[in-house]
Design a protein around this nucleic acid. Structure first.
Lengths: 143, 143
DNA sequence: CTACTGGGTTTGAATATCAAACTCAGAGCG
DNA sequence: CGCTCTGAGTTTGATATTCAAACCCAGTAG
């Protein structure tokens, strides 16, 4: 009989519990680009407003985003990423980079980041210990 | 009136069109860990079987995965990542790394990769031009 | 007075998800 | 032979989610 308890415990799955949703990721993208207002996030992501509400509430509950009411009547709030939220930048960067490399966009890469070295950021994942770019053959899985 | 045409064209969104789904990402994880069989992927990810079928078909259609029938009767197939599929490794790696750093797991990090330098892979995103680790302050957005 | 803005909530129909049961064609066992 | 198991799905039917569009409320601009 099937055991059904062999689902893999995994940091990837745990991360997806937090940001494993299109509108969540796109909302974080907008926040990283400096948009703090609900309407701006809604229209730039295309997310339905009610869905966006639940996603932002969940991001707040997860500590990635703060909601600050900057006005009482009528209630107006703005959203900002916490440090924890900003720590997702490598995730968004690799997502963007993969799309840039492999998926054709009508107008080329959007929302480009320029690094302080003067060049457009071309992110590369390296091994922190030796500085080399790991590839499929230089990695061994240890499960 | 709202324009509604100001949804941001974006490589992140395009990437999410391809892999913006929990079961899709977890299936790719299993394929990277060497599981080729439908049942193995289903039980290690916990994905419902019908959903997994549609996800694998879509991955195949997107060119990330090949399905090879290794037996006719009864039909038995195995799945493998293409080079394009393997090119998602930085994405999965940053997802895993973020979970490792920020989300508590009951048994610590799973499915660890060991780099050929001998150390457990601790991935870092650097600027390909100058080799420095970019942070929030060294980046300028160019939208 | 009217229109608009901002940050939502409500509504109701369309879709997607899910667990569990089922299918089909063999293989292994006794 | 009869029985069960495996593998790769498909089917079923109940539940949950998504979505677009309309609505709400309090204030501001004209």
């Amino acid at each position: 009989m099937a055991r059904e308890k062999d689902v893999r415990e995994c940091s990837i799955a745990r991360t997806l519990d937090v940001i494993g949703d299109r509108w969540t990721v796109l909302a974080i993208r907008e926040l990283m680009l400096g948009n703090r207002r609900f309407d701006a996030i809604a229209s730039r992501t295309g997310a339905p407003r009610d869905i966006l509400t639940t996603r932002l509430r969940k991001l707040e509950a997860s500590g990635l985003v703060t909601r600050e009411q900057y006005q009482e009547r009528p209630p107006r709030s703005e959203y900002q990423l916490t440090d924890l939220g900003w720590s997702l930048q490598p995730v968004l960067t690799t997502l963007r980079d993969w799309g840039d490399r492999h998926l054709a966009g009508p107008d080329g890469p959007p929302a480009v980041f320029v690094h302080s070295c003067g060049e457009v950021l071309e992110p590369t994942l390296v091994c922190a210990h030796c500085g080399e770019v790991p590839d499929r053959n230089s990695l061994t899985q240890r499960v």
